[in-house]
Design a protein around this nucleic acid. Structure first.
Lengths: 339, 339
DNA sequence: TTGTAAGCGTTATCAG
DNA sequence: CTGATAACGCTTACAA
């Protein structure tokens, strides 16, 4: 068991079982039409030798590698990891392995790794890609996108989500509502959330001055900066809808640093409902995306496509739901940031 | 650019450039000894055709695949993702790709995927494996472990960390200090942290009843349950040292559910300093591991080994530091859990 | 039911 | 400095 370990190949197993390589290959792939006796003998030889297929050889030979490639911007992005957790469990159950690669939001890297996966994986899961990379895969392997860009997508109803968040603030009595936007230049999701925000304001007859929308790039740091900008305006908003939880966390930090209490002086709503949202101080009111479930669904769709089953859905949309926690309240008296 | 995309091979580029496959291969691998003219002509052909190497073929042919394999228990494990973020940036810079696989803390899966990586990757990063899987790799490819099990390891000083956490509670005046342990049956790290806890208690002449140590398995759910057990003992501890931040988060939840205020009625210390620790309510006092830096160091060590450079360090140990936040205070008057 | 031959795209080796 | 050939481990066809 703890030998220096030499690579065991199909040929070794074949020799050991006294059959041809093909017979071993057929056993491994559960091909029908073969005597149970041989099948068992081969199986024993496989166990005895400790043989495991070489995925590179298998992929090269033009057949499936049992790998699902995943492209995600970052590995420590809660939004992505919660989705991928769901996907991972599903893939597991189907006997497929998730091979995860990061793209650092870099278009060149994204493209490069996509090309790499084209020859390595049986299918690809694209997590919020910055562009539709569908053409890279052509019909070489199936692709499912988590996000708005793509041929087959799984996502949440961003527009309704943005409207829900904003409407919640309106219902609380807020009239000056700011927005910390996401990466609108590359992600349709961000654009849609902002559109929902505007739609709700419009429907309520509330103003939406341009200065009330600041870019937070979906990150904590830039969310913090955006919130600081909003809260130090001559006439600052009393409530902020942040395009995701991370920028909302940054916004809470900015408010606190300015001596403002959340939610007494400023209300803040996030988007995603990542794990930290329920644990943080104050617990974050947010728009929930069923992340794990979305991951599961996307993985299942991809697996079906890999298996060649007919799936006609092109765009699966999950509902967004409002989760009210402690970061929102009716507008208070203190309006301007001290210090 | 948006053509259905046909796979371009070395042969295609060679034909297009009017040279042999080998020359193209040599250009791609920056092999010396070749006229600049040819090199440039080939380079042009590569760009024109949009050629990208097939990693499967490369790996099969016995040469490096430019892939670093990673095995991690879960994809949404903050401890792991923060380490891997550091590793990812480093690998990036060296032109290597991180391919991340999960093991779900399942020994069989761990072994299976390790074997898979042996033929697929140039080197492997094992994140807190449940056993030393070194033998699987033999000297086929180098391995670096983040955790205590392994031939080459990168980890934090767990013993000192455990002692620091406990000493901090002792310094605050606590005399009844409980411990929520990790997966001691599979992880030496957990054993070491508990040993540090015991050492500190012993040095201070404080009691360490057996019931004061409960297993939390490093998870939020079991951490919560363990804390509930501790806090409902006839003579409950006034302070708890949890073996990691996730179980500490569970402990805070349990205390709150029991009507206890943290830190007024119970002090809680975690371990890791994951991102959530600083954001949660109350902010968690914890033992910091420099996770990103550990990831960077591990990746660099592995890359050097892959490149064949001599690195003699077998065990790199980072210091653990105490971060005091809001979850610890001197013992209060209220000792027993109400309801 | 089982075996044989050829080839996937790349690189090492060795000639030219 | 460049090119031909064989090999990596597996699978698809087809033959027995």
């Amino acid at each position: 068991m703890s030998e220096p370990f030499v690579a065991v190949t199909l040929a070794d197993v074949a020799r050991s079982a006294g059959v041809s390589k093909m017979t071993v290959s057929n056993v491994i792939n559960n091909k029908p039409g073969m005597s149970d006796a041989t099948r068992e003998r081969v199986q024993r030889a496989i166990n005895a030798t400790g043989y495991v297929v070489n995925p590179a050889a298998r992929a090269l030979s033009g057949r499936r590698s049992n790998l699902i490639g995943v492209l995600t911007p970052h590995i420590n992005l809660p939004f992505a990891t919660e989705i991928l957790h769901g996907a991972s469990v599903t893939a597991e159950a189907a006997g497929l392995n998730l091979a995860i690669f990061t793209t650092a939001n870099n278009v060149t890297l994204e493209r490069e790794r996509a090309t790499l996966l084209r020859t390595l994986a049986d299918g690809v899961l694209l997590v919020i890609p910055s562009a539709d990379e569908h053409h890279i895969f052509g019909n070489a392997i199936p692709v499912v996108t988590l996000g708005a860009h793509g041929h087959r997508t799984v996502q949440v109803d961003n527009h309704t989500g943005g409207a829900l968040a904003t409407q919640h603030l309106i219902d609380l009595g807020h009239t000056r509502i700011g927005h910390i936007a996401g990466m609108r230049d590359v992600l349709r999701d961000a654009v849609d959330r902002q559109a929902g925000y505007h739609a709700a304001l419009l429907a309520a007859g509330l103003p939406a001055p341009e200065a009330y929308v600041q870019d937070g790039e979906f990150s904590e740091e830039l969310g913090e900066r955006a919130a600081r900008t909003l809260l130090t305006l001559p006439e600052p908003p009393t409530a902020i809808f942040a395009a995701n939880d991370r920028s909302a966390i940054g916004a809470v930090r900015a408010a606190t640093a300015l001596g403002l209490n959340v939610p007494r002086n400023v209300s803040i709503v996030g988007f995603d409902d990542i794990h930290a949202a329920s644990v943080m101080d104050p617990p974050l009111t947010t728009i929930r995306q069923p992340l794990e479930e979305m991951g599961t669904t996307a993985a299942q769709l991809l697996i079906d496509l890999i298996r060649g089953e007919e799936r006609t859905e092109m765009h699966i949309c999950f509902p967004a739901t409002l989760i009210v926690r402690g970061s929102t309240a009716p507008p208070g008296r203190t309006q301007s940031a001290s210090s």
